[in-house]
């Protein structure tokens, strides 16, 4: 109310900016990057070593790639009012498939990569069928694969870290094109493809309508089950790509640890990006920003020189602040106190 009656002045543009959904996540990301710059003075430095661009900002993009990919898939799933807990396990499975294929068979590595992505899609299909056709609650349906998936990956790798020497597969994680590492290209490609799919076709709208009210959507003639299936398959494919990157990065498939707990980071990224867990409207770009926020915090902590015992606490506090910044209650409180302060200052100058 008070905001409405405020005179426009120069505050207006700032206010409309802060009311923009994109403002707070991007603001938080910039704030965290600045904080990192204060801790490590050469944080923004970027140099070229042996034809490859180096620097902390690039590290954030490379290391953040798996969660960025997961968050893109997760956004679609959450928009349908679902959730996908299995992506960490799918990472382990797809990595195991690719690593075992190239190390024990003579298969063309490109084919191995495609098979691995296909396995990710299959995992997504499994989740989607359970959710969409058997009406199992998403958290339960995907929990099944979350728990059993690592076991499946261990069966594939025989419980060992499956190492390989194939250069093509390794390229997925550490290859460089024009000075930039390959995972960054994968992220950009997936983001653009998904963005085109959901914003240039009807799929995005259908996903939002299914997430907002799947019964109403059904009666309106939308095949809600197929839309959900699409979201889970997309999430599975994103997880498989993340698994390929993580596996290729260390030239080995670690069934026990690859992607461990990353499903939680992905969900967090989506939430930071402002997509509601209740489904409906979703914001792909902001989920990616959310993923980059998480990675910036982690990279910052690694470079801060803090004792490792503080890692999790610092991460939790920073994320909490980011989420508080987005909370309507806190934001109203801040804007009220800013207004009050402004009113006082105006009173003084008058």
């Amino acid at each position: 109310m008070s905001e409405m009656t405020q005179p426009a002045e120069r505050g207006f543009s700032l206010q409309s900016l802060t009311r923009n959904r994109a403002f707070w996540p991007i603001f938080a990301l910039l704030l965290i990057l600045l904080g990192n710059r204060l801790i490590a003075p050469d944080f923004f430095n970027i140099e070229v070593v042996e034809g490859r661009i180096f620097g902390s900002l690039i590290v954030i993009l490379i290391r953040g790639a798996p969660v960025v990919l997961l968050s893109i898939g997760m956004t679609l799933v959450i928009a349908t009012k679902g959730i996908d807990l299995s992506v960490g396990a799918v990472i382990a499975i797809s990595g195991a498939v690719a690593a075992v294929l190239v190390s024990t068979t003579d298969i063309n590595p490109i084919l191995a990569i495609l098979i691995s992505i296909g396995v990710g899609a299959l995992c997504g299909l499994w989740n989607g069928i359970l959710v969409a056709y058997f009406n199992i609650q998403p958290i339960v349906a995907t929990l099944i694969l979350m728990v059993s998936g690592r076991g499946i990956a261990q069966l594939i790798t025989n419980g060992q870290i499956a190492i390989f020497n194939d250069e093509t597969l390794a390229f997925v994680g550490t290859g460089v094109i024009a000075g930039i590492q390959f995972p960054i290209y994968i992220c950009i490609a997936v983001f653009v493809i998904v963005m085109l799919l959901v914003r240039r076709t009807a799929i995005g709208l259908l996903i939002e309508s299914v997430g907002a009210n799947d019964r109403a959507s059904y009666y309106a003639g939308i095949k809600a089950a197929q839309i959900k299936l699409f979201a889970y398959v997309a999430s599975g494919i994103c997880a498989a790509l993340a698994g390929l990157i993580l596996t290729a990065d260390i030239k080995g498939a670690d069934a026990n640890n690859a992607g461990l707990w990353l499903e939680l980071d992905a969900i967090l990224a989506v939430v930071i990006g402002g997509t509601s867990l209740d489904g409906g409207r979703f914001f792909l770009g902001l989920s990616v920003i959310g993923a980059l926020i998480i990675q910036s915090v982690e990279t910052g902590i690694l470079q801060s020189g803090l004792p490792p015992t503080f890692n999790l606490v610092v991460k939790a506090i920073v994320i909490l602040i980011v989420l508080l910044l987005q909370s309507d209650v806190v934001r109203r409180w801040i804007s009220n106190s800013v207004n009050r302060l402004r009113g006082q200052m105006r009173g003084q100058t008058a």
């Binding site: 180096f54 990065d249 690694l302 470079q303």
Partner: peptide
Amino acid sequence: TQSGDFTRTGGKEVMESFLNT
């Protein structure tokens, strides 16, 4: 000093940040 959680990915990420710092 930093924790790499006993994993290869952890060790690689931490070493990268060391070489950066």
